[in-house]
């Protein structure tokens, strides 16, 4: 029964995506809405990305220093391990999990409220492809801004590591820099960015699907927001395994 429901939901999602991924009716309107979404979903997320990454970078640095570094480990291990964790998982996967909570619930409640107040029916009645009009700019907006958020997150995390080293004196900037530069692989940055494109698509499309298919009133919109965040998180974690397996082999 649950399996049949899951297949039905996935089928509905695919049908919605078929309507979303079509040519916009008015390009000017599409560009205007995409700019609005870049600001709404991307630019407005910069502060939370910077703050969380700064603290996690600092905490990672302390953890590595106190738990990993030992007399027979090289000095650069703290910086090296901090960089690898930030690059490979935190700034793409964990940051997108956080964005699934912030951006995902925002998208579901916005579109869900439009559904229950008949605004989507009004668009359909005018002959507008409401799925394309409402969802495509959100998908485009976040997919375009996610690399910037990932880079900001990496930079902020590294900044946090330097800051905590300076403030607590647990390690010098030179030691940290040595670790950060040790066997640096540019591909890991691309790996992080490529993964985040998939995650951005999951967040915007799945959250929009839950909002678009809301039935009922405001309580249902709330439930849909929660379900959207849970589904986005599960899908991000699952696709992280798949993508890591594909890209790291």
């Amino acid at each position: 029964m649950i399996l049949i429901e899951a297949i039905k939901t996935f089928g509905s999602y695919l049908l919605l995506m078929k309507r979303v991924l079509t040519k916009p009716e008015r390009w000017l309107m599409f560009f205007r809405r995409t700019l609005h979404e870049i600001y709404q979903l991307g630019v407005n997320s910069i502060p939370i990305v910077l703050i969380i990454s700064l603290f996690i970078g600092a905490a990672l640095c302390i953890q590595m220093k106190t738990n990993v570094e030992s007399p027979w480990m090289p000095k650069f291990v703290t910086g090296y391990a901090t960089r690898e964790v930030l690059l490979l998982e935190f700034s793409s996967t964990i940051m997108c999990l956080i964005l699934a909570g912030k951006v995902g619930s925002n998208i579901t409640s916005e579109i869900g409220a439009m559904r229950v107040t008949q605004q989507i029916d009004a668009l359909d009645m005018m002959g507008v492809n409401s799925a394309n009009f409402l969802i495509l700019p959100k998908v485009t907006g976040l997919v375009l801004t996610i690399p910037i958020l990932v880079i900001f997150s990496i930079a902020s995390g590294i900044g946090g590591a330097f800051l905590i080293g300076k403030l607590t004196g647990i390690m010098t900037s030179e030691e940290l820099t040595l670790g950060l530069q040790h066997e640096f692989t540019v591909w890991f940055v691309w790996y992080s960015i490529i993964k985040s494109f998939f995650f951005a698509f999951i967040i915007t499309s799945v959250a929009s699907f839950y909002g678009y298919t809301v039935k009922g009133g405001s309580i249902e919109v709330g439930k849909a927001s929660t379900n959207a965040v849970v589904s986005c998180s599960a899908l991000i974690l699952f696709s992280d395994i798949v993508l890591t397996n594909i890209m790291m082999q």
Partner: peptide
């Protein structure tokens, strides 16, 4: 596109001003 519809809840787009709401079908 030949139909005008008045919904029970008015269904105005709440992110747009009154003028933008009326201009919307013309813009599209």
């Amino acid at each position: 596109r030949e139909i005008g519809m008045l919904f029970q809840s008015a269904a105005l787009f709440d992110s747009m001003s009154v003028l933008e709401n009326v201009m919307f079908p013309l813009d599209m």
